[in-house]
């Protein structure tokens, strides 16, 4: 078990430089803005004193190295600064916005996995008909931009059939059923494309496992075909599927930025887009930071799960 423990520790340590790089990128956002970022933020009608005051509040008048360590210290203390427009605490803002993004991406991924994995297995082991049908679903699912799919779903389910609201949001704890009604279309929109990717990955991973020699030996042992597929092929395909799910969480977080804007969901993605359009750089920084941190965390968890699923990875042995 020591090699496993070493694997976990090594992977945890590897996260530190990644977090540092991420923090530098986020730190630089405001400082790389061409010209005077504060002037850009406040607009040309702002007075010189006003500009200087905000510059001082943001610490932009200090040496850059000091600025970075102040920034890092703030992050570690949980002090994320304040929103330039609303003067609200960004930490509070994030606490409001994050649950929306989590609900959206979490539900979408859940549905995508529940649909994509079983269909992928069927596509890998089934007859020609199911192969063709899933192939078509994959090509369309990958080719249709999610925001257009969302618009078309609104056209069908909200404008025409009037079954679901076209946009808006109610927190789950206020009205659970209404919350789900508002979430239905955005979640469905994100889930379709994801399901296509997961289906495709599952199919090719299971297909390739089914050609491996040990499947021949399982048949020679008289093991049933369904047990071979679900007990062995899917088990061996699991690391690749989990890896792709981990990567796709990043795609999903990107998709959430668009989908939250489209459906007027008050999540972190919409926060960032609005902030960019308002030149509200501190808020952009915090939003980017939050999404990137989730992404890095998910990558970490994915790698640990893959290591646990495939003992050869955590033992450091070559395949």
């Amino acid at each position: 078990m020591t090699s496993r423990l070493r694997f976990v520790i090594r992977r945890l340590l590897l996260t530190i430089p990644v977090l540092l790089v991420m923090s530098i990128i986020v730190f630089l956002i405001i400082r790389l803005v061409p010209g005077d970022p504060v002037r850009t933020m406040l607009g040309f009608r702002a007075t010189a004193e006003n500009v200087e005051q905000v510059r001082h509040e943001l610490g932009l008048d200090r040496p850059i190295v000091t600025q970075y360590f102040d920034f890092l210290g703030g992050l570690l203390r949980g002090d994320l600064g304040t929103d330039i427009v609303s003067h609200a605490s960004l930490a509070d803002l994030l606490a409001q916005r994050l649950p929306v993004t989590f609900e959206l991406t979490g539900l979408a991924m859940l549905i995508a996995v529940l649909v994509g994995v079983p269909l992928g297995v069927r596509a890998a082991t089934g007859g020609r008909w199911i192969k063709r049908a899933t192939e078509g679903f994959v090509v369309l699912g990958v080719s249709i931009p999610d925001f257009w799919l969302g618009i078309m779903l609104v056209l069908v389910f909200a404008s025409t059939l009037v079954l679901l609201p076209p946009s808006g949001y109610v927190p789950f704890e206020v009205a659970p059923l209404d919350n789900l009604r508002y979430m239905a279309l955005p979640v469905l929109t994100l889930a379709v494309g994801e399901a296509a990717y997961i289906l495709r990955t599952t199919r090719s991973a299971v297909e390739s496992v089914m050609t491996r020699p040990f499947v021949g030996f399982l048949r020679a042992k008289g093991v049933s075909e369904s047990r071979i597929v679900f007990g062995h092929a899917l088990r061996n395909a699991a690391p690749s599927i989990v890896t792709v799910i981990g990567i796709q969480v990043g795609v999903l977080l990107g998709g959430a930025i668009i989908i939250e804007t489209l459906f007027a969901l008050p999540g972190v993605g919409r926060l960032v887009v609005t902030a960019i359009n308002q030149r509200n750089y501190p808020t952009v920084q915090v939003g980017v930071l939050a999404i990137a941190a989730i992404f890095i965390l998910v990558s970490l968890v994915t790698d640990l799960v893959v290591g646990w699923l495939d003992p050869r990875v955590s033992d450091g042995a070559a395949t």
Binding site: F214, G216, F217, A220, G222, H232, R235, N236, D310, P311
Partner: peptide, 21 residues
């Protein structure tokens, strides 16, 4: 019949075993 009345083993034992089991 297979695995009960008649069995077969193959050339490469490493490849005959499921690496995850």
């Amino acid at each position: 019949l297979r695995g009960d009345e008649m069995s077969m083993i193959f050339q490469d034992a490493s490849a005959s075993l499921d690496p995850t089991w």
